[in-house]
């Protein structure tokens, strides 16, 4: 991804076109570009520390098949694949794409609430999802300064 596009704009675009893959790619870019001071998003620096020594596979899917992606964390790097892998540490199945965004961008933990609302099914190790929840919220609210959608 070109660094000339602002991170905020990319994020907003990905939300507007509801692209999970683009959103995950943005996250991978943020990790990769957080080792030193970033001109566009100064607070991004140090974000990579969250995934140091973190190895895990997250699969995202939806019941209507509109969502399918794999996020792979290997040795401090994040790789995004457009299809849902068959091997994972945690697999999150959303009822639809709206459920995905609700989970990603709510202010609270979101995860338990989404399960309770029957909008999300989680297979595998829930703790990985809590970790992913922190990664997202750290990026979106703390470093990019966006407001939670439900506040």
């Amino acid at each position: 991804m070109s660094k000339s596009i602002s991170a905020q704009r990319w994020l907003v675009e990905s939300i507007l076109d509801f692209s999970l893959e683009k959103f995950l790619e943005f996250m991978a870019w943020a990790i990769e570009n957080s080792h030193e001071k970033n001109f566009f998003v100064p607070r991004l620096q140090g974000y990579y520390r969250n995934v140091e020594n973190f190895n895990a596979v997250f699969v995202f899917a939806s019941q209507d098949n509109s969502i399918h992606a794999t996020a792979r964390f290997i040795d401090g790097k994040m790789f995004v694949e457009p299809e849902a892998d068959k091997s994972w540490n945690v697999k999150i199945v959303f009822s639809d794409v709206n459920a995905f965004w609700k989970l990603m961008l709510s202010s609270g933990d979101g995860i338990v609430e989404a399960m309770q609302a029957n909008e999300t099914q989680v297979f595998g190790n829930l703790n990985y999802l809590y970790k992913f929840g922190f990664l997202l919220k750290d990026l979106i609210f703390e470093r990019l300064g966006l407001e939670p959608f439900d506040t």
């Binding site: 520390r49 969250n50 020594n53 973190f54 596979v57 068959k86 091997s87 994972w88 540490n89 697999k91 297979f123 595998g124 190790n125 829930l126 703790n127 990985y128 809590y130 970790k131 922190f134 750290d138």
Partner: peptide
């Protein structure tokens, strides 16, 4: 975030029970 939670990610009571009695990791 850095020093406490990562060490318990596979070691909570819930996760221990899940990995013993239910799905194993890395398969459907």
């Amino acid at each position: 975030n850095f020093e406490v939670f990562p060490h318990w990610i596979n070691n909570t009571v819930w996760e221990k029970a899940r990995s013993i009695y239910y799905e194993n990791q890395f398969h459907d």
